[in-house]
Write a protein that binds this DNA or RNA. Sequence first.
DNA 1: GTCTATAAATGGATAGAC
DNA 2: GTCTATCCATTTATAGAC
Lengths: 182, 182
Amino acid sequence: METSLKLFSEKGYAALSMRDLSDAVGIRTSSIYYYFKSKQDIFEALLQKAEAMTDALKASFFQALDSSENVACEDFVRAGVAFVTGYLQNEKIAPLLHALESERFHNQQADETWQKMLFSVPIEHEAKVFKMLYERGMIKNQDAEALAAEYHGIEMLGYFSGDIERMAKALESFYNRVFAGN
Amino acid sequence: METSLKLFSEKGYAALSMRDLSDAVGIRTSSIYYYFKSKQDIFEALLQKAEAMTDALKASFFQALDSSENVACEDFVRAGVAFVTGYLQNEKIAPLLHALESERFHNQQADETWQKMLFSVPIEHEAKVFKMLYERGMIKNQDAEALAAEYHGIEMLGYFSGDIERMAKALESFYNRVFAGN
DNA sequence: GTCTATAAATGGATAGAC
DNA sequence: GTCTATCCATTTATAGAC
């Protein structure tokens, strides 16, 4: 599973052959069929793992920001950077996301899980955070959904472009405008 | 070329066979080799086309916003929506971007062109626009780079998530804060 | 320019010994 | 559980007739 994740993310589903995989694992091709009934079966196990990761993400999101009573600009920026560099780009999650992204136009479930992991789950949480910040009187803007979309947009730009410094500056700029006068 | 663009974007490079392609075009597989010396050759022609599209984009960006002397919120939102729905999602560009995205982890040039088209070129232009808006006294925020990153982040979120309505609302929210008090 | 024919390699997958 | 051996379909690509 580990090796298939690595190779699927590097080569893509169609380009990865069972021979490549068995060579990388150090067994014969036919031995793979003792554990998985087909190549598709391996990929589906991967999809399941990604689904599980998404559920896990849903549970543990942004705890630091969520529980804090006072949000300093540094915390705010740090939380955003941490999500991208510490989570999306970490060695466990990144290959999973790459494998999903490479197949998302040819595999509906890959697309759905990818969107869930990168967009719906985090945005839903972020909207809750902004709602909380409003209710505590820490920000004046009531539209938590729009704020979450802006916030997450900055994160996604950092994730896809890889320019984390620019992302951090944009988050800071965002913070200064949203928290201005509070 | 048209058919290969369509099929590469739908199936991905490795999954598209020369047979699929020749069947779709209505000729025999061997006849393709009269025009292209290999499958890779076809994909590289596609990459070239994408590069040309990127150069064309660079030239014609956001003219409406660029030339206006007064930016109303509606114009601002409309320009952003137009870039995503009218350009990125149109029938000429979308398959090109999908083909590039599917291969970006296995093909460096695909990755570079994809990043250029979706991020560097538009952001560079958007930063110029915000700089202009500042110089004309229409906004108070001096950091055009950060504003462009925020603005483009919202667009990318709309593009990838497909939620154009949310994108429009976030752009409106962004406008209201950036242009507040001017 | 398009075809038939075919080469030569690689693909996913199975049978059955150990 | 892992192996050898093998099947058979499909792949990219070429040669050469028309």
